[in-house]
Write a protein that binds this DNA or RNA. Structure first.
Lengths: 207, 207
DNA sequence: AGGAAAACAGGACTGAGTCTTAAATAAGAC
DNA sequence: GTCTTATTTAAGACTCAGTCCTGTTTTCCT
């Protein structure tokens, strides 16, 4: 009846390995022949497990692309910034640190994920629906950093703006793939800081 | 060989009626027994057409909820604002006019759609993934209104901010359903205009 | 009326996701 | 080491969304 609560048993290690294998083969196959053209059966076959096993590790086919831990890395990076730093500077620093801290494999994986996110509609949809784009989650993060509450409408508005900045950056990178995603995001944040002058510009007639 | 290009024939009227019937029954069934529990076959059966006919009118099951013309109404409303109006004022005016211009049936339908959007995860995800949240589309709209091009990074940044504002508004309404979606959106836009003071606020340690 | 074009019903088919059952395997107790 | 028990897995049946094809009906135009 005494369960050892943690988790470094052989069983747990095997699970982690199976999960990693599934993800690795899935991303490889998606890159090789495309997302649609790869069935879950293919992935399971490549990883040498049953189809049903795939679904034990990932609730949906999309999940195998979406699963990651960049968000938690970002949270850690933000927590590591010295107290008293202005929020914008802290955010910039945390974003930089997060991407700089990725190892080679993670970085390549992130690259592929972003490409799939731009290319495959289902993934784009799923990505947008995800935590990374979630106002509530971002609001909690900001609130905690500033010592405010997530109920604060200022905080929610800021969270929305941050997400909007990521959308804009994503769009710009999609247009010009040579762009750096991180730098573009940071540039847009800088712009937002000083307000949005375009709001005061007069409109002209439609062409 | 001369095709009469227009479209008020019996055929077109029947099509419009079939489409409306499908949507009406679909929304009714979703409201009655839930989204998941309603199959496309049920909807087609209720509207007295074949399952395959449903897919002739709506590409996916989600589409029957998402289909609307609010976006085009918004474009028209924006075009109707007098030349020379500052952009923010024009946007606010257009948003107001769009919602005010909905007739009773549309308004009720919009109500139900929003409720499903908040209630059913699939629909929420689909809504987020839709054109309404698309940076490219919003950028084109803004660019056309200002006589700039959608390539302008200022324009893209603004489009991102607008989308972020809608996200934030959606979140606030989800928290407090009595809130007016329109008013909340407008309030957040006002805030953005004067910049984001929170960016300069110093961060505190994580709790 | 008669022929062309579009819309339709019906159904076969693929693949995602759920669920159940039985076999394999790891954990802990003796 | 072996036995018991809980968890993990394989295998496959099943539902439903979405695609595609075929032959039939309806509308349109002349």
């Amino acid at each position: 009846m005494c369960h050892t609560l943690w988790v470094d048993s052989l069983r747990e290690r095997k699970k982690a390995r199976t999960r990693a294998e599934l993800q690795r083969h899935a991303l490889r196959l998606f890159a090789e022949r495309g997302y649609e053209a790869t069935t879950v059966e293919d992935i399971a076959g490549a990883a040498e497990v049953a189809r049903s096993t795939f679904f034990r590790y990932f609730a949906t086919k999309e999940d195998v692309v979406l699963f990651d831990d960049v968000d938690s890395l970002f949270e850690e990076a933000l927590a590591a910034v010295p107290v008293g730093t202005p929020l914008l500077v802290a955010l910039i620093e945390a974003i930089r640190a997060t991407f700089a801290g990725l190892n080679e494999q993670k970085r390549a994986q992130e690259e592929l994920r972003m490409r799939l996110g731009r290319t495959v509609p289902e993934i784009a949809a799923a990505l947008r629906a995800r935590g990374a784009w979630d106002v509530e989650q971002t609001a909690r993060l900001v609130a905690s950093a500033l010592g405010r509450t997530p109920e604060d409408i200022e905080v929610v508005a800021l969270a929305g703006a941050l997400i909007g900045a990521r959308f804009a950056a994503q769009t710009l990178v999609a247009r010009e793939p040579h762009r750096s995603y991180v730098d573009t995001t940071l540039e847009i944040l800088e712009r937002l800081r000083s307000g949005i002058p375009l709001f005061d510009e007069p409109i002209v007639g439609s062409s």
